[in-house]
Simulated assay, not measured.
Amino acid sequence: MPVLSGLGLIAVLLLAVKPQRGDAPLGKGKRPSRPLTELLGDMVETQDTLFALLERRQTPQQARQLHFLTAVTSGLLAKASHDLADPHAAMLQARTAVLCADQADHNGLRAWLRGLQSMVAYWAGRYAEAVRYAEAGTNIAASAAGTTSVWLPVSAARGYAALGNSTKALSAIRAAEEAWNRVEPDEVDELGGICTFNQPRTLYYAADALAWLPDAADQAVDFSTRAVNAYANPNDPAWAFGDQAGSHSDLAIARIAARDLEGAVEAVRPVLELPPSQRINGIINSVQRVHQAVTRAGLAVEGRDLLQQIEDFTSTPLKALPR
């Protein structure tokens, strides 16, 4: 397989795992362009083909390109494993990808993979580990200047917030916002899809961090409202159903903190209408955080219908579907 055809196949996979423009809004029959379970076979086959090519004799430039492609493909498989709630497999794929990125000697790719590792650790509840990966990647991203240089500090913010360190969380959010002034898209950004970061995701990650902090309730409402608005248009190239669902969940948590149960129900309702094929790991965890917020706020009696809906929703995650 020529290297350029490998790039083309990876581009197809990136587009396939990202919902296409023109899809219906959240909760209105939206479907991804192709279900994740249909893509896994193509991803694994692509990775196998690239590894087979790496076993052959290559020129130094070809070897670098093949390692770059293999790192990206392994990163996509790490994200797929994460979406299927298998953090162990996700980390194994990510570590394979890091080794390939080192062989490609590409700092932008190294930094992006640290972001993936931070994300996997965060949703697995390993918050200190999530911070460690994010900060390790931030040091690398300083010399790369791609959009990952924004993703990493705001990822660290989520980890710090989950650990209860509001000072470092708020500082990391500010660092992410300031990083936009220095961004210069690189080869990783050019792949698009999950390989690049954007302004709406910055708002969503900041909202996700602030939702952990009781002393940042007003900021949580502000950022989560802005994030929901940023994902309101499914025709926007930056739109993604997972991030939209997370933003709605964060707004629900912020409203629960203000004891606005009716507003929380309104915010999370579109998420609870998602079909099982879209109930990826991040969405399941986000909705479970809403459940926890209701009970912690002492609203279990008033919110029993919402709690039941969440329990029904989370009983059929994507990982439970036949493959």
Score class of each variant (00 low, 15 high):
residue 275 P to L: 09
residue 52 A to D: 15
residue 217 A to P: 08
residue 115 G to H: 01
residue 156 A to I: 09
residue 223 F to L: 12
residue 69 L to V: 01
residue 74 S to E: 13
residue 236 D to A: 13
residue 245 A to Q: 03
residue 51 F to N: 10
residue 54 L to D: 00
residue 5 S to T: 14
residue 178 E to W: 08
residue 85 A to F: 02
residue 60 P to H: 04
residue 158 R to G: 11
residue 111 A to K: 02
residue 208 D to A: 14
residue 193 G to E: 07
residue 302 E to M: 11
residue 239 W to I: 01
residue 161 A to W: 06
residue 209 A to S: 15
residue 264 A to E: 06
residue 126 R to W: 03
residue 138 T to P: 00
residue 78 A to M: 01
residue 207 A to P: 06
residue 46 T to L: 15
residue 168 K to S: 08
residue 242 G to T: 06
residue 103 Q to S: 15
residue 141 A to C: 08
residue 309 Q to V: 01
residue 260 D to T: 04
residue 202 T to M: 13
residue 183 V to C: 07
residue 28 K to C: 08
residue 155 S to M: 12
residue 156 A to S: 11
residue 63 A to S: 15
residue 285 N to L: 08
residue 56 R to W: 00
residue 173 I to W: 10
residue 258 A to S: 08
residue 219 Q to G: 12
residue 56 R to H: 06
residue 236 D to M: 05
residue 259 R to S: 13
residue 219 Q to I: 03
residue 2 P to H: 10
residue 224 S to P: 11
residue 198 N to F: 05
residue 86 D to K: 07
residue 260 D to G: 05
residue 4 L to T: 10
residue 166 S to W: 04
residue 70 T to Q: 00
residue 296 R to I: 02
residue 32 P to V: 02
residue 184 E to V: 12
residue 32 P to N: 05
residue 41 G to L: 08
residue 7 L to G: 15
residue 166 S to Q: 09
residue 217 A to E: 13
residue 189 D to E: 09
residue 287 V to Y: 00
residue 174 R to H: 14
residue 123 W to A: 01
